[in-house]
Design a binder for these strands. Structure first.
Length: 448
RNA sequence: GGCCCUAUCGUCUAGCGGCUAGGACGCCAGGUUCUCAUCCUGGAAACCCGGGUUCGAUUCCCGGUAGGGUCACCA
């Protein structure tokens, strides 16, 4: 029984963009801490001076914050600012004889002799309990007296991790499966400095479709790339939580708060999980549907896209929004569709071949002319307050003459396209005046 | 290759000795207003193999196979 408050950590190395796997690890650490009323610590592992960059650190912080993850006091611990602490521990170990300085040729340039610090390996078997996988045993003999510092001033990863986890009172180390084999040597260091062993939980890896580790060659791996495509934070959190964790029920949609309430290490999967863009996209569509019209409009930056068109008006954009919403899963899809002209009809008189007005069952396009005229007459007195109202004015006529015969030319006259939203919606978006004008335009086109 | 981890539909997963092996994404078919999209309904689709243990194994144990991770003076 331990009643210590739960403290987890997210220790990214600022040597690259915020990886989706790092995001998932951070999420699980956050959820676990929240669930148990504890907190997460953010620690920048920037001991590799050559590769660490402050801009990467900023991107990581911005990304995790954007998703709604929080850490203790908004504090950023940096290992590069803690060398004095590591030095103290190093000196203690050397004094105790559990570590020693060793003069040897540098690995970078074998010409140079340097003095690294090695841990005196007791060469024993280490068994630890993984909260997800159970007991894991390693024989540490093959590790030898491994290097824990380049010099007394320059401690290496395994050492800094162990010292920091100890100093910061980390109770649960929740990290990727790729760290399993690092655990025994870290435990050896722990025992050397007299630190208590935290609980360990190793998460399954997120895999590319070919089951290998996710990397650039498989497409996007950085959070920012998904952000740019228009993935909403709710979708990212929700999808990532379900990649490797299961609520044990059929529920699929979870807010961050709900996840924090439900999360449980016992329901974490052991095997690696393939990142499925399609299902991820499906989640995004779901959360897009939850956006208000104003939010959707801002999200799409829709005005920017359409404001240059001759008939642009906010009123029409307003009416067009539901149509856009049901046809996209991401902002990127919207941009592609908009560029392809799918929503052009709303703000510009369409140009099209006369022959497009011909319904497939008609002999000639001329058959459509009288129907267009009749439609115009019906719509002159129609209610345009909703697509359903427009439908009410036309439907009896369409049933009488034939749905395709009436609806097809109407739709083409209003959209100028082979594929488009239904004609009632088109008419509703355009309004009475413009609808009549386009019907007349189509009629004249046939006549000419 | 050594060490370690893992193994249910194509994918994410439920299952914790006895189930017609459930759900979701995707796919296919049908329906809802002509087209597209949405939506609805239905369908195809899985326990890696071999030994045990047991009255009974998808489930427990062992072995094999396959996949993954890791073997730095990176993190």
């Amino acid at each position: 029984m331990d009643h210590k408050p739960v403290v987890t950590r997210i220790p990214p190395s600022p040597t690259g963009r915020l990886h989706i796997g790092t995001v998932r690890t951070a999420l699980f650490n956050y959820l676990f801490a929240e669930k148990h009323g504890g907190h997460m610590i953010f620690r920048s592992e920037d001991t590799d001076q050559a590769r660490s960059k402050r801009e990467y650190e900023e991107e990581i912080i911005a990304g995790l914050s954007w998703l709604g993850l929080r850490w203790q006091n908004e504090t950023i611990y940096r290992q590069s600012e803690r060398t004095a602490i590591y030095k103290t521990y190093l000196e203690k170990l050397i004094a105790a004889g559990t570590a020693y300085a060793s003069k040897e040729p540098s690995k970078q340039n074998p010409e140079e002799m340097i003095e690294v610090i090695r841990l005196k390996n007791p060469n024993k078997a280490i068994t630890f309990l993984d909260e997800i996988r159970g007991e894991i045993t390693f024989d540490t003999t093959e590790l030898g007296d491994f290097v824990i510092a380049r010099s007394i001033e320059d401690a290496l990863y395994h050492f800094t991790v162990v010292v920091d986890d100890h100093e910061m009172g980390i109770t649960h180390v929740i990290r990727g499966e790729d760290h399993i084999s690092n655990t025994p040597r870290q435990i050896l260091i722990q025992e050397a400095i007299g630190a208590t062993r935290p609980h360990y939980a190793h998460l399954p890896l997120i895999l590319a479709p070919d089951r290998s580790k996710m990397s650039k060659r498989h497409g996007a791996v950085a959070l920012i790339e998904y952000q740019k495509e228009g993935f909403l934070k709710e979708a990212i959190v929700n999808y990532l939580a379900l990649l490797g964790w299961s609520p044990g029920t059929d529920q699929e949609f979870f807010s961050l708060e709900e996840l924090a309430e439900r999360f449980d290490l016992a329901q974490v999967q052991k095997g690696g999980a393939i990142f499925d863009k399609q299902k991820f996209t499906w989640f995004n569509r779901h959360y897009l549907a939850q956006l208000s019209d104003d939010e959707l409009r801002a999200y799409l930056a829709a005005e920017e896209f359409f404001s240059a068109l001759p008939q642009f008006s906010n009123e029409r954009l307003e009416k067009l929004l539901p149509t856009i919403r049901e046809r996209i899963s991401t902002k990127k899809e919207f941009e592609e569709q908009a560029k392809a002209g799918e929503y052009h009809f709303a703000f510009a008189v369409p140009d099209y071949e006369v022959s497009l007005l011909k319904w497939k069952k008609d002999e000639t396009v001329a058959s459509a002319a009288p129907r267009l005229l009749h439609l115009k007459k019906l719509l002159t007195v129609a209610d345009f307050s909703s697509p359903e109202a427009v439908k009410g004015a036309i439907w009896p006529y369409a049933e009488e003459v034939g749905k395709g015969e009436v609806l097809w030319p109407l739709r083409v006259a209003l959209s100028g396209r082979e594929q488009s939203p239904d004609p009632f919606t088109l008419a509703f978006i355009l309004g009475q005046e413009e609808t009549e004008s386009r019907l007349q335009f189509a009629y004249d086109k046939i006549a000419a």
